[in-house]
Design a binder for these strands. Structure first.
Length: 424
DNA sequence: AACTATTGCAACCGCCGCTAA
DNA sequence: GTTAGCGGCGGTTGCAATAGT
């Protein structure tokens, strides 16, 4: 990758910007726009690199910036968003008009993290510290030092990292029946329950009819997650394999997971209903010794919602299956979560509720936010580009064209996953 | 008042993905 | 298909302001 040419140049000013420099940059951009940032310094008469100019403009000079302290609502929102998006500050910033990613990042590192820890909440995982400590060795964190050792691999986008999972598996024999053999016997992709593309596409097509014609308006698309998730059991039985099927989700770039079918979800914030639902198509999976660890993303089953208040529609506006819950219940079976009579797990509190010691209905604004957030989350998280999928559906493409789009995305995702797995 | 520690903010660094040549 | 340039992002550092002793 080419490095910025300006970085090689000497004689460029660094450090704090003077008022004169600010004025020059401001004048130039208000008159001409920034255009190509690399040319801005020259045109504006600045001894700065374009990158520095861009940063200055975005973080300080932009006229639409909101200055001043963050409100409590903004902080709550940041926490909510962080639980979903992880350290994707730029994406978080798009939800807070007038705030920059840098500003939010600083606030998080200097203030919010501290508050969360004081509340006994791990800012990385958004789970109670006690629970985090139980799962991983205690880490020492110093505010101003790198937190690389402080980061739970399952944090960030709050979806389990398969590498982390595998490392835990290695230390936990009880995990082997579910996952470990993937590592012990082989690291090949064949042992992952990745649906064959043809079947995958079939499942997508079968859910196609439920989709709205437009993605930009109206409710969340009724994406056929359920069909997709149900695939695993079907495929497992058809092919005589184990029915312990898991859908991994993409976490960080190093994650060897597949996000093909499941939008990412915060394990804590979004799983107001963490319904570990057995497949309705598979009554045997209802929980008596049948070795089906198949879970699915129930987008439209109201019975899967067991909670009130913020329940029912969680903050994504549709029924979510918490991936972490999937992991906890299928891979970490010892996790102390007690399903209710419907097989649903107790809901988890939302962050602001935990922070403020209250637990109220999800504010309407949050609902609205969450609904629109859904698309961003999908876009941000999904290595298998769900946006591409939804866009494909929302456009008036013929089914064959949809399949082509999906097929391409599938190939891409699978390839990425395969490469990742080879590195384990 | 002087010194030290802490905090908050601004800016830099290095990497990544995209894209045009 | 390869490469270089670029924009963008997240992590980290530097430093002034403030608080504490």
């Amino acid at each position: 990758m080419g490095r910025h040419s300006c970085c090689y140049k000497q004689k460029l000013r660094k450090g704090l910007w003077s008022p004169e420099e600010d004025e020059k940059l401001m004048n130039h951009i208000t008159k001409h726009g920034h255009g190509c940032w690399s040319t801005v310094p020259k045109l504006a008469g600045l001894q700065r690199c374009g990158k520095s100019c861009r940063l200055r403009w975005i973080n300080y000079l932009r006229p639409d910036l909101k200055r001043g302290a963050f409100s409590q609502e903004e902080e709550d929102l940041i926490i909510e968003l962080h639980a979903v998006l992880g350290n994707r500050w730029s994406q978080i910033a798009t939800r807070l008009p007038g705030r920059t990613d840098n500003e939010i990042k600083n606030l998080w590192n200097s203030s919010i993290k501290k508050k969360l820890r004081q509340k006994g909440i791990d800012p990385n995982t958004h789970k109670p510290l006690a629970e985090v400590d139980r799962k991983s060795a205690p880490t020492i964190s110093t505010e101003r030092t790198s937190e690389s050792s402080d980061i739970d691999p399952s944090s960030g986008s709050a979806i389990g990292n398969l590498n982390h999972l595998l490392s835990e598996t290695a230390q936990s024999p009880e995990l082997l029946p579910v996952l470990g053999k993937h590592r012990k016997e082989t690291t090949s992709l064949a042992h992952l329950r990745v649906p064959p593309k043809e079947l995958f596409l079939d499942q997508l097509v079968s859910g196609h009819d439920n989709l709205p014609s437009s993605r930009s308006t109206g409710p969340i698309p009724n994406f056929p997650f359920q069909q997709l998730m149900c695939y695993s059991n079907e495929f497992g039985s058809k092919h005589g394999g184990s029915t312990n099927s898991l859908w991994f989700n993409q976490n960080e770039s190093s994650c060897s997971t597949i996000s093909t079918v499941m939008p990412p979800v915060s394990p804590s914030t979004l799983s107001t209903s963490t319904g570990i639902n057995r497949s309705p198509d598979n009554p045997n999976s209802g929980g008596t010794g049948i070795q089906s660890n198949q879970f699915y993303w129930d987008t439209n089953n109201p019975s899967s919602s067991s909670s009130k208040g913020s329940s029912g529609s969680n903050s994504l506006g549709f029924e979510l299956q918490s991936t972490s819950s999937i992991l906890e219940n299928s891979i970490f079976p010892w996790t102390d979560l007690s399903p209710d009579k419907n097989g649903h797990l107790e809901e988890e509190l939302k962050w602001p509720d935990l922070l403020h010691g209250t637990f109220t209905d999800t504010p309407a604004t949050m609902q609205n936010l969450s609904q629109s957030l859904y698309e961003d989350v999908v876009k941000a998280e999904s290595q298998f580009n769900m946006e591409g999928l939804c866009a494909a559906w929302s456009q008036n493409l013929q089914p064959q064209q949809h399949l082509q789009v999906v097929s391409d995305l599938y190939d891409k995702d699978l390839q990425r996953m395969s490469l990742s797995f080879e590195n384990i």
